[in-house]
Design a protein around this nucleic acid. Structure first.
Lengths: 229, 229
DNA sequence: GCTCGTATAATTGTATACAATTATACGAGC
DNA sequence: GCTCGTATAATTGTATACAATTATACGAGC
């Protein structure tokens, strides 16, 4: 269904290295490994039942992603992700999401436009029924459509990265309070601006949507919940 | 001199893996390896006089960076970087550079402010003398100062990444035409807005600066030169 | 008791061996 | 000549051996 062709991601989750990478990544993002904790190749290998080779390859990727720091001949240390990092990413994402909305206005296909309208229609329905899981999925999908419609491999890749980083926080936010209605309303605003070919309005609406999501998160104190892991 | 503490980069250029990584990366960005070209572990290892292990680790990093795509059990293929990618990155960078200028307005230290003023003073001097190498270095350093002053590990990391991506193109642009004077003037505008604590003006000036740099590049046809590699 | 140096252990860096998978060559059958 | 299947070669995936480096233990000397 979704077109993931252009996404650059660790391509196989089924190889040992892929599994190791995703496991360690998850454990860092969820706080199981604390800040500055040293990760040892053999220990992690034994825990997952693999040799050092896939662990080392996973480490190299995590290093590039900024989740760990490797000091040559010494060790790998968790960099983690702080409250300020999350805040900064939201603000960066706000700017780039605006750019995505602008470009989507110029490049969206009829098919994508239809899916976007349908997405909002369904969101409103499920919001009225309180179907939280569907709302979360539709919310995620809305952003994916936007990223695909902007027709930029680079921007799409970047925004998907940001999205993943904050996904854990965002999911809680949506499922634990009443923001979903406001969120759908903001999606609708973005969609209508795109449909009206008003790139300026689309950009601003997308900017605001992400800032609102962030502010809502702070207001609800879920931010601190995140910090505790 | 420069504070690279927070930068997440491949930490050692002197290990075999570090050398392999930088070599392949350079060869992709400079077009020695063409789009869709298959990279073989043994061949590259032999060329550089190393075994497959460091080559594989380098591949994993290049994959995450989006420069190659690894198809499991099959091979590694160069993704390259197209003209549109460069264009998109400039526009994305424009937005984030604006954010950096905004945050720098709020967070710049006296020391950083002084270095920024000095940087512009020196740039004007070297521009009047036509010292191209110094101008290029000062130009790079101006942006580094800005990234450091914004006080955001995340934003700094991102912008440094973008900067690296387009560095090869940008260097040519600066050294082959008369943009350097205009560029310095724009840096001065950003600096003065930051000094005046005018975040809005700083952001807009930084936005425009990157867009101007891009448009100049297109105007001078250096863009196509890039495409030919 | 404290500092320092050396021996030993632990850990990372790299090469290589072997298994698993994919690509290629080539001939049988039509 | 074309298609397909099988044997062989080439390539990647992972484990492991060994070298190089760093961490730790511990005792000599003060």
């Amino acid at each position: 269904m979704a077109n993931y062709d252009v996404k650059t991601e660790v391509s196989d989750k089924f190889s040992l290295r892929g599994r190791v990478y995703h496991k360690i990544r998850e454990d860092i993002l969820s706080g199981i490994y604390k800040d500055n904790e040293e990760l040892r190749e053999v220990a992690i290998g034994e825990e997952l039942g693999v040799s050092r080779t896939p662990v080392r390859e996973a480490f190299r990727q995590l290093e590039l992603e900024g989740l760990i720091q490797i000091i040559p001949n010494k060790g790998a240390y968790v960099t983690g992700i702080t409250v300020k990092d999350v805040q900064d990413i939201y603000m960066m994402r706000s700017k780039l999401e605006g750019l995505a909305a602008r470009w989507a206005t110029e490049n969206i296909s009829d098919e994508q436009m239809n899916e976007m309208e349908e997405n909002i229609y369904l969101s409103e329905f499920h919001a009225s029924k309180g179907h939280m899981e569907q709302i979360t999925n539709l919310d995620n999908r809305f952003h994916e459509i936007l990223y695909e419609a902007c027709n930029s491999k680079m921007l799409q890749h970047q925004l998907q990265d940001f999205h993943e980083y904050v996904l854990r926080v965002r999911k809680r936010t949506l499922s634990e309070n009443k923001r979903s209605a406001a969120s759908t309303e903001e999606h609708k605003e973005i969609m209508e601006a795109i449909k009206a070919k008003d790139a300026d309005r689309a950009e601003l609406a997308a900017n605001r949507h992400i800032v609102n999501a962030y502010e809502n998160m702070v207001k609800n104190g879920l931010y601190e919940a995140y910090e505790r892991g």
